[in-house]
């Protein structure tokens, strides 16, 4: 290949890359709603059919995510550090959204059904806010929900059979009133930014 030809190819490649970046930028901002505390999906993603149970024993399926905005967090009650910390943030968040009259359903999904009975889960979740919804169920159903939400969880053995722990995604998943995954918020969570973003999303006409 002649040097000039190589240069031309290089320039064309660079221009193409630049054009790609510009297009990507336009596509990322085309929703018109910017959030400082998380990432919104370009295209909301539907959630495959799943059925879990809430802590009252009632079925919790896709229909329970429709008609309102929801924020979903995966964890387990044997988690003494990160889960109470995050639920504490969600409790303060909920109070801020109440003030702004921005309704939001907060859902804590236990990925440890082996140890988290509905009773134990209910006591744990409702300590933070009695309106928080705790759900869990069969591992196969949990996996369906996790897959749709791009969440992962895995059991990690402990020093004894009953002291295993769970690795789990740390993201808060935002679900729109159509029951679709709408965006993600990753820690460390900044309460004020998170609240401001959610208020503007929830109160914006959709």
């Amino acid at each position: 290949m002649k040097p000039t030809k190589a240069i031309i190819i290089g320039v064309v490649a660079a221009l193409a890359a630049l054009a790609g970046l510009v297009v990507a930028q336009l596509m990322l901002t085309d929703r018109g709603i910017e959030v400082s505390s998380g990432t919104l999906l370009k295209q909301p993603r539907s959630i495959e059919a799943f059925t879990l149970r809430d802590t009252s024993g009632a079925p919790f399926d896709n229909s329970r995510l429709a008609g309102q905005w929801s924020l979903v967090f995966a964890g387990f009650t044997f988690c003494p550090d990160v889960c109470p910390n995050t639920l504490g943030v969600l409790k303060s968040l909920k109070a801020k959204l109440d003030e702004a009259q921005a309704p939001l359903q907060v859902v804590f999904v236990s990925v440890d059904p082996e140890r988290d009975s509905l009773d134990r889960l209910g006591t744990y979740v409702h300590y933070f806010d009695p309106r928080f919804v705790g759900i869990t169920g069969d591992v196969a159903e949990l996996e369906k929900l996790a897959r749709s939400m791009s969440l992962v969880f895995a059991k990690v053995p402990g020093t004894t059979p009953d002291s295993y722990t769970m690795d789990h995604s740390s993201a808060l998943v935002l679900i729109n009133p159509q029951g679709q995954v709408f965006g993600y918020f990753l820690p460390p969570h900044r309460l004020d930014a998170l609240a401001a973003d959610l208020v503007s999303l929830i109160r914006s006409p959709s």
């Binding site: 964890g75 990160v82 992962v152 990690v156 020093t159 722990t165 690795d167 995604s169 740390s170």
Partner: peptide, 19 residues
């Protein structure tokens, strides 16, 4: 019954807890 030292960490968006 038991006390252990653990560490929480975030690796690639995953919350981990290790002894």
């Amino acid at each position: 019954g038991r006390v252990e030292l653990h560490r929480s960490s975030m690796v690639d968006g995953m919350m981990r807890m290790e002894r």
